[in-house]
């Protein structure tokens, strides 16, 4: 990723808190998946979460828009606490964009309809205006010419960029990425990462579960390493990669960077 010139001028972290998680625990039945998670995300932060599979990193970010329910502790997103109150949940979800590993585009709708559906039905934006916004973001992810095709006609990388555009159409203040490049062929990973870098350059608050360590080094201002449902280590990327403190982190890094 070192070949990409990254403009860090707008990547400023403000003091304003975007996400506050304190003392959060989650269980699947008897299985304790997330243990005593405490973290604060400020507006404008770009956080990469990594860790071995089963470490709870996806579950953690899925808790932030309540695709998963937590059983203990507190999650506050943009000043709204996530409880069982459906109104709060829908409010948080419309402010938080999410990009999935398997894109999850709606196959029965065109690319344009995928992008305008939520703005029209959730934000109540007139159709014409929603379409203009959608085309704006499709141009931004560099596939405006595919607007009238169906997701099944696009490559994986294109689908993932549409998924990003679809989230952006809701004008979210926070973006969550759940292994956005893990299901892609190597040559398509770059086009998706480039889109994400562009987003970071504009100052978007991002939480990203990924194994792309180059992306982490280039874009993140903080890397969080998780294992067995706990935050094991967090640091700014240079320190994290060059001087890891915990043995578990060292082992993990040696395994993924070793070859």
């Amino acid at each position: 990723m070192s070949d990409v010139a990254i403009d860090r001028s707008k990547m400023k972290v403000s003091d304003e808190v975007a996400i506050q998680i304190s003392g959060m625990n989650k269980w699947y039945g008897q299985f304790h998946v997330l243990r005593d998670i405490n973290m604060t995300v400020n507006r404008g932060e770009r956080i990469v979460i990594c860790g071995p599979s089963g470490s709870g990193k996806s579950t953690l970010i899925r808790c932030i828009n309540r695709l998963e329910e937590h059983q203990q502790g507190q999650i506050v997103v943009d000043g709204t606490e996530l409880t069982n109150d459906l109104k709060n949940i829908d409010k948080v979800r419309s402010e938080v964009g999410m990009v999935f590993q398997h894109f999850n585009l709606f196959p029965h709708l065109t690319i344009l309809e995928n992008c305008t559906l939520a703005p029209i039905w959730v934000r109540k934006i007139p159709k014409r205006e929603a379409e203009e916004t959608a085309m704006h973001f499709l141009r931004k992810v560099k596939i405006p010419e595919q607007a009238n095709k169906y997701p099944g006609q696009l490559s994986g990388g294109q689908q993932q960029r549409v998924a990003i555009a679809r989230s952006l159409c809701m004008k979210p203040r926070i973006m969550l990425f759940d292994e956005p490049t893990s299901a892609l062929d190597p040559e398509m990973i770059k086009e998706v990462l480039d889109t994400m870098i562009e987003l970071a350059e504009e100052g978007m608050t991002m939480l990203c579960v990924t194994h792309e360590m180059g992306f982490a080094q280039a874009v993140a201002n903080r890397v969080i390493f998780m294992d067995q449902g706990q935050i094991v280590e967090q640091n700014e990327p240079r320190e994290f990669f060059n001087n890891p403190k915990s043995d578990r982190t060292k082992l993990f890094l040696s395994q993924i960077l070793g070859h």
């Binding site: 999935f100 999850n104 585009l105 029965h108 559906l117 939520a118 959730v122």
Partner: peptide
């Protein structure tokens, strides 16, 4: 339907009935 369709609808902030009507049922009925 893959679970991802429900999750994507949820993640966009669609409530239950809209998600069913716009996303889930058109595909399930098809």
């Amino acid at each position: 339907l893959p679970r991802g369709q429900y999750e994507a609808a949820d993640a966009l902030g669609l409530d239950y009935w809209r998600a069913q009507r716009l996303i889930i049922l058109p595909q399930a009925l098809k």
